[in-house]
Amino acid sequence: MKEELFVSGRDIPNIDPYLNIWHWQIPLYLYLGGLAAGILFFAGYFTIMRKEKDMEATVKWAPFLVPFALVLGLFALFLDLKHKLYFWQLYTTVRFTSPMSWGAWTLMLITPISFIWVATYMKELFPKWDWKFEFLNKAEAYAIKNRKGIAWIMMMLAVILGVYTGILLSAFNARPLWNTSILGPLFLVSGLSTGLAASMWMSKSKYERKVLSRLDLIMIGIELFLIIHLFMGFLSASEVQIEAAALFLGGEFTVVFWVFVIILGLIFPAVLEILELRGFHIPVWIPALLILIGGLVFRFVMVEAGQITRFLY
């Protein structure tokens, strides 16, 4: 039998024995970005379809989570930076080949838009709300008049944000687990699904919940389809990607991935949603919470596992 032994005279923190430079901040940030993208996408969609009355939670209330999610996500990203005081360098240049630059600029646009969106519904949530300054009242009136335009921009930016959370990882060809173009659409769909779950949880109308859970079932279906393709692609690719897939097919991430992401995060909530649609009474928070946790675990698993995979030489 041929044996091979590598000894490297190197022991750099977070690089050796295997890469671990991104900790909890990045998966949390990717998750919150996806969640925000999901909520804003459907808020925009139902506004454009003129369903504000029927889909109140989706259009008006769930977006209130977004500014918090984005600010928290950006804060996590900031915590991850090692050269923190220089973070503003992100905004001195636009680099088209860098997904991180795309993300930084997208967030620069979508964060204020989410604030504006929420501000236009402030008076509906708090009837006594007053903007105090005349120019703010004028700005609010202007934004309310142009809600549909904002909704279009918001939807497009939400798609870029959702896809970006996946491309951020898939652009690294040095990490075989990430280096697949399916990751962009997969993270987008996963983000849309978590966004729907959040809206569903906040909704009090039976009709709205029904529409959302139907949409969510479609998202879960697409997500499972993409995950199957992800593994099919890995298993028919080169050695390094076969080994990357092995981490989930018997390797150290098998249990956490199949139990928490696939079964508890996708299949079980889908079954509950189907039962609900069939007329069984199931508390809405159970499938919603499971989907939200599943999405979070998915990001953590992908970021953690991807850093272990590498080229062999």
Partner: peptide, 18 residues
Amino acid sequence: CIGCGACIQSCPYDARYS
């Protein structure tokens, strides 16, 4: 450099460090 770590992730040789 903002220390985001993207280049460290992108290097197949792990030649960079923080």
